[in-house]
C-alpha cells in the first residue's frame, strides 16, 4: 500500500495525470511534435546506454539467457490469450481483435522506465539485460497477430503499392528499436569507464525529461480516450483493465518456474503486462490496415497505459518480490 501511494505521488505520475486531465478537460495545451520525438529519442538512448553499460559489467549467466527466453515466449503467446479474451468478451471483430492482441504481446518502454524507477526505489536491483529483453519483446507479438488474422483470411491479399520487405523494415528498423538496441550496443562497447563522460547528460536530467515526456503521454492518452471511447464497448474497456493482470499472472508464474531474481521478475512482469502504443500501431497500419486504430490505440494508450502506470506498477513490483528467487 505504501509503495502504491509513493508511486501515485511521484512527479512522473503527477505530470502524467496533469496531461491526462488537461486533455480530458479539452485544454489546447500541446507538446510540439518534434520536441516530443526528441524527448523519446533521448529517453531511449539513456535507457539503452545504461542497460548496455550494466551488461558490460556483468557476465552472461544462465539467468540472463532464461530471461530472454521468457520474454520471447511471452511476446509470442500473450496475443493468443488477448485475442481469445477479446473475441469472447467484446463485440470486436477478428481483424480488430488480432491487431489489438498484438499490442498486448508487445511492450511499452515508458511503462518499463517508470517501473525501473519504482523497482530500484524498493531496493531491488534489476539487471541491465532487461533493456535488451524489452527490445526483443517488441516484435514476436506482431507475427502472432498476423497469423491470427490470416487464419480466417481476414487480412486479405497484398495491399496495392506494397512491396516485399516493407513490414519487416518497419518492425525491425523502426526508430525505437534502432535507438534502443543501438544505444545498448554502444553502452556494451564503451563499458562503465566510457560511459562516465556522458553521465551528466544521460543520468542527472533523466527524471526531469521523463516528467516532460509523461506530460505529453498524458495529453496523448487523454485525447485518444476522448476521441476513441465511442468505438469501445464495455467488454473492450474491461479487457484493457483485466488483460494486463492476466499477462502479469502468466509472467509471474514463468519467473517463478525459471527462478529469476526479484528485480528481474518485477520488470519482466511489467513488460508482459504493458501494451505497445508506438511500434505496434505503426506496424499494424501496414500489416492490417483494415483494423481500426481508434480501437487498439484507445485500448493500449487510453485504458491500459494509465492503469499500469498508476496501479499496475506497484502490484507488479510486489509480485516480483513474491515470486523472485
Amino acid at each position: 500500500m505504501a509503495m502504491a501511494l509513493e508511486t501515485l505521488s511521484s512527479p512522473i505520475i503527477l505530470f502524467f495525470a496533469l496531461g491526462l486531465l488537461a486533455a480530458l478537460a479539452r485544454s489546447e495545451m500541446t507538446v510540439p511534435e518534434a520536441f516530443a520525438k526528441g524527448l523519446a529519442i533521448y529517453l531511449m538512448m539513456a535507457i539503452g546506454l545504461k542497460g548496455g553499460v550494466e551488461m558490460a559489467a556483468n557476465p552472461l549467466t544462465g539467468e540472463v539467457i532464461r530471461a530472454f527466453g521468457a520474454g520471447i515466449v511471452l511476446s509470442f503467446a500473450l496475443p493468443l490469450v488477448a485475442f481469445a479474451a477479446l473475441r469472447l468478451t467484446s463485440g470486436i471483430d477478428r481483424v480488430d481483435a488480432a491487431a489489438s492482441a498484438a499490442h498486448y504481446g508487445s511492450i511499452s518502454i515508458v511503462t518499463f522506465v517508470a517501473a525501473t524507477e519504482v523497482v530500484q526505489a524498493t531496493g531491488l536491483m534489476p539487471g541491465g539485460h532487461l533493456v535488451a529483453v524489452a527490445a526483443v519483446m517488441e516484435t514476436p507479438a506482431i507475427i502472432t497477430a498476423l497469423l491470427l488474422a490470416r487464419q480466417a483470411n481476414a487480412a486479405g491479399g497484398p495491399v496495392a503499392g506494397s512491396e516485399r520487405g516493407e513490414l519487416l523494415r518497419e518492425v525491425m528498423l523502426n526508430a525505437s528499436v534502432v535507438v534502443l538496441v543501438g544505444a545498448l550496443i554502444v553502452g556494451w562497447i564503451i563499458g562503465p569507464e566510457g560511459f562516465e563522460p556522458t553521465k551528466p547528460f544521460f543520468v542527472a536530467p533523466f527524471q526531469g525529461v521523463l516528467c516532460l515526456f509523461l506530460l505529453d503521454m498524458g495529453l496523448s492518452a487523454g485525447r485518444g480516450l476522448r476521441q476513441g471511447w465511442r468505438q469501445l464497448d464495455v467488454g473492450a474497456i474491461t479487457f484493457g483493465l483485466y488483460m494486463p493482470l492476466i499477462s502479469a499472472a502468466v509472467a509471474a508464474a514463468l519467473c517463478w518456474v525459471l527462478a529469476l531474481a526479484p528485480g528481474d521478475s518485477a520488470l519482466l512482469i511489467t513488460l508482459a503486462a504493458s501494451a505497445s502504443y508506438i511500434a505496434v500501431p505503426a506496424a499494424m497500419r501496414l500489416a492490417l490496415p483494415k483494423a481500426k486504430p481508434a480501437i487498439y490505440l484507445t485500448l493500449s494508450l487510453g485504458v491500459t497505459f494509465p492503469f499500469n502506470l498508476t496501479f499496475g506498477i506497484p502490484l507488479y513490483t510486489a509480485m516480483g518480490q513474491w515470486v523472485g528467487s
Binding site: 507538446v31 511534435e33 523519446a40 485525447r223 476521441q227 502504443y277 508506438i278 511500434a279 500501431p281 505503426a282
Partner: peptide, 15 residues
C-alpha cells in the same frame, strides 16, 4: 468516420 483526429494527439504518429 465519426472520429476527430489531430497530429499532436498520437505518440506513435501512426494515425
Amino acid at each position: 468516420g465519426e472520429t476527430k483526429w489531430q497530429r499532436d494527439a498520437d505518440i506513435s504518429a501512426s494515425r
